[in-house]
Structure formats: C-alpha cells, structure tokens
Computed example of a mutant assay.
Amino acid sequence: MKANSLKVLVLLLTGILISASTPNKNHTEKTKFVVVLDAGHGGKDPGNRGGGFKEKDIALSIILKIGKELEKNNDIKVIYTRDKDEFIPLDTRAKIANDAKADLFVSVHCNAHNSQAYGTETFVLGLHRNQANFEVAKRENSVIFLEEDYQITYDGFDPNSPESYIGMTIMQEEYLDQSILLADFVQKKFTNDLNRSNRGVKQAGFLVLRQTYMPSVLIETGFLTNTSEGKYLNSTNGQTKVAGAIVGAIKDYSHSINLGVLDNLENNAKIEVIAQENKIKEFTDNYEGITFKVQLAASSKKLEPKSSNFKGLTPVFREKEGKLFKYYFGATSSYSQIQSLHEQAKTKGYKTSYLVAFKDGNKITVNDALKSQAK
C-alpha cells in the first residue's frame, strides 16, 4: 500500500515538474497580434451578383490570400470566420472575434449600385450620414433575414428601418479612433499602391461591426456592377493586388498600434540618444487653447515613457484611454513645431505615427484645430 502511495506521489511530482518546465502555449499565443478575417456572405447567401459575379466567392478568395500572407509573420495569428463556402450568421462572426480576444476584425465585401459607380470605401461603425451609406448598410445587414429567429437574435433590429439604426448601441465607441486609423491605412494603400478611386472612410450601422469588441472595419473593395471593376475583382490578379494592399494596411496598423517594435528596446542595454539639433527654435504660429501631439503608438502594454524606450525621443507622454495606453511625443500649441517633431519621429522609425489635437483636454480633429484662430 505504501509502495503504491509512493508511486502516485512520484508521478504527481513528475507531472508538476514537467508542467513547470513546459512553455505556456496560451501565454505565447496571447503575445501575438490576433487578426480575425471575415469573408462576407457565403453558403445560401451569395451577396450581390453584379456583373454576373458572386460577391461571396470573391470576398472569400481575397480573405484567404490576406490570411496566407499574414500567416508568414510569426508575430501574427490569423483566425477566419469562414474559410470555405458556408453560411455564417452575423452574430456568430462577431462571437468568433470576441472569443479570440482579437486585436483586429477585418470584413471584406464587394459593392453594388444601379449605375457604373466605382471605387473603394472602408466603413467603421457609426450612424450613416447620408442615404448612400444607409443603402450599403441596409444591403449588407439584410442577410439576417436568412437566419432563424433573427428578430430575437438582433433584438427586433430591422435593416430597412432608419429608426433601428438611430437606436443602435455604439458598443465600439472606445475603439473608434483605432478603427478609423486602420480604415485610413486601407484606403491609402488602395489609392497610392493600386491607383484605385478613393471613396473615403465612412461610418454606417453594420450589424457585424456593432457586436465586436475590438477595432473593426468593413471594406468594400469595389463595385461588381461596374464593368471594368467587376472584371478586375473577379480576376486572380485583381484579388491578389487587393489582398496585398489590405495586408500592407494591417501591418502598418499593427506597427503603429501594437508597440511590438518596442519589445526589444526594453531589453536593449544601450540606446544612443542623439542630441536634437535645432531643439530651441522660435515658433510663432500658436493656436490658443490647442495642444498638438504626435501619437507614436497605442497598446494594452504599459511601458515607461522614457527616451530609451522610444529610440531617444523626448518628451514622451503616456495616457490611458479606454483599455489602451497611448504614447505621445511632444506637446505644443504650434502647428509648425509639431510638424517638425512629427518628421523627427518618422526619421526615428515611427513611419505610421500621426498628429492629434486636443482642446481643453478633449481630443478634436486636427482639421478642426487648424480652423481655430491662429494667434
């Protein structure tokens, strides 16, 4: 009896030692940048069929190409809401992203219109400000009519009723800045790299975005109803280029938002702090009551805002906004000075940094800041 008890004790101790010496896989996974890729429509829902094409097939092809490229990066984990032709309810797509505690949710679609309209547009969650945006949201949300008990699942939401959108709870409010940032990266890649017509970053009430709890965008990659654009999107070449642009935007965003580039800096014993030439310079274009800053990055990671952690940049400020820590370089009422600091940040490697503005402690757009009276 004692011998058997001793064997059990030895086995238990061995198991504990093995467990302690084995790397924590879940911990490793959590350090990765998690991207959930959502191919619009699928299965019994073909999406729009402009030009005789099927939106569901094109969206899936583009998503799989995006995923294949992202998976080459060991720091990125890719999750698909669907990787084949199947019907996935909108709330299930959001649940997949929420359960994965994703850093990003990217939904890909193709547009349609009763004209030869063309161009790309990327949406973030919000109330539509014009009829065109409402029509896009209404079309994409109408998929819920194919779901059983959709009235219960979506609390009586009616895609065709403007009142339903007015009453929509904006669950994503704290992620809006990050969603707009990603959307802007996407549109710039389409415009600058592919020479596509830019219809802009827009807001509308998409159900699939409403229920996600992370920065989320819905990308309309072009119009299948446009003769040339439909053929482009249905071609392997077109899909590869569109996917490549979205991959580039996601990478730019992750570098800006995830602070992954800073992980190695914490362990770097010596970082040369280069003296800043022209540090003392007179700037007279002051905007009274306005503070401009350069946003270097944002992350759930709390990092000391010292120069050695930010490639020698100083001063750096850390502020908590929602669930994220945001890291700002500089603080000035001079627009020309903040532009100079922005250039300095970019030469240090912060290529995706951007300007932000505050008035009386509240964030406003830089355009609104510049509209105020210069002193």
Rank of each mutant, 00 (worst) to 15 (best):
I96R: 12
I96F: 05
A97Q: 00
N98H: 01
A100E: 04
A100M: 02
A100F: 07
D103G: 06
F105R: 01
V108Q: 02
V108R: 08
H109Q: 10
N111M: 11
N114A: 15
S115N: 14
Q116I: 06
Q116H: 15
Q116F: 12
A117D: 13
T120R: 05
T122I: 08
V124N: 02
V124L: 10
V124A: 10
L125I: 14
G126M: 04
G126F: 07
L127M: 13
H128E: 09
R129P: 05
Q131I: 01
A132R: 04
A132P: 14
N133Y: 06
F134M: 09
E135R: 11
V136S: 00
E140V: 13
N141I: 09
V143A: 04
V143T: 10
V143L: 06
V143K: 02
I144G: 00
F145I: 08
L146N: 11
L146P: 04
D149G: 11
D149N: 14
Y150I: 09
I152C: 13
F157L: 08
N160Q: 15
P162F: 09
E163M: 10
T169G: 07
T169V: 06
Q172W: 13
D177C: 05
S179E: 09
I180S: 00
L182I: 00
L182G: 02
K189F: 12
K189D: 14
K189A: 10
K189R: 14
L194M: 15
S197I: 13
N198A: 13
V201E: 06
A204L: 03
A204H: 05
L207W: 05
L209H: 05
L209N: 00
R210A: 11
R210C: 08
M214G: 06
S216P: 00
